[in-house]
Design a protein around this nucleic acid. Sequence first.
DNA 1: GTCTATAGATTGATAGAC
DNA 2: GTCTATCAATCTATAGAC
Lengths: 211, 211
Amino acid sequence: MNDVRDTKTRILDTAEKLFAGNGFHGTSLRDITKDAGVNLAAVNYHFGSKDALFEEVFRRRFLPINRIRRDKLERIREEARQENLRPSTREVLQAFLAPVLHFRETEPGAAAFITLVGRTISEPDDRLREILMGHFRPNFFLCFAILCEALPNIPKDVLFWRLQFSIGAMSHTLFLLGHAKVFPEGVIPDLDAGAITDLIVSFVTAGMETQ
Amino acid sequence: MNDVRDTKTRILDTAEKLFAGNGFHGTSLRDITKDAGVNLAAVNYHFGSKDALFEEVFRRRFLPINRIRRDKLERIREEARQENLRPSTREVLQAFLAPVLHFRETEPGAAAFITLVGRTISEPDDRLREILMGHFRPNFFLCFAILCEALPNIPKDVLFWRLQFSIGAMSHTLFLLGHAKVFPEGVIPDLDAGAITDLIVSFVTAGMETQ
DNA sequence: GTCTATAGATTGATAGAC
DNA sequence: GTCTATCAATCTATAGAC
């Protein structure tokens, strides 16, 4: 009632939350429109279909994340070139992984989206996974290319797999952050985004550079 | 027609394949029974429900994998104790991760199951994910405990997160192995299970031991 | 054990009034 | 733009004949 967001935004926010929690196929249009407080027909009026709504959930969030990520990666590459040095493996991986976790903390409501990303990477529905990959692929290849410059003595196919391992570590972490209850007692899971970022960047940097 | 497997086995094999390819909710009982060449009602007759069939798919495969994994981990721990040494981080992680990949190559039809595991780790349906976690948890904690003995100078919560990163790397890899088409040209993706195992064990060992 | 037929519930999408 | 009402398709599960 006092919700000043317009209908489109309310639907997007709610869809993001429910897709993250119950998956695309586990969320019906009735779930979304009821939770958002809008009419059942509003999704098809504003977005055209359930699929198109899913696409818009991703487009809205990925545009700013990808801009930051690409700018950081390009700057690292350019600065290394101007100083005739190799890019730093850690800085490359930091630029690739940190924006997502940072975004999770600073953007209101983004936590649900990040959980959704962690899930959609292994989404069974090829159509949905491709929507994610379309946003993700360009920066993946950019990161891969700069890593090859950073570590020219390691075979490219090894670096390729190691970057995939890093993405796996990351996506699993994003998923876990949305399901805090999996942690055992005695182990402190409540680390902030900065601490988690440091942990995972150290981990994958060591793995990437090992001989 | 010439299929000598009994109805139960045919249903299990087919369900495993289709759940891996299209997800639990993307696979109907009609899909399964049609592909298996059995009657629609056979699933409910032999297993009771679609959920119970899913459970049996996991039980059948996890019993032998978990036995091998537990035996290997316990032996590493015991041998280290008798020689008054710390367990080797690499051997622990190898014992934890290798059986799944090895099983994928040697057991007929297991590849589909492994893909399914990689997917179910981030399954949106809590009920389904819990079926997997029930099989996975005991060996996870056993591995974690031995890692704490192997690396007593690294804080336990750091080791806990690093083991989670390792599982993420592993599950993403298992998923990718079921979707070879994601690889770019020029990079050779066709590594066998042994090569992939070496790559991932080296990666996570370096990440686990870094200061 | 295997089959057909169907109950009973839920879904995405849309037509048409306001 | 928003609403109600409803269509057509899909699903799991089961009753009951053979």
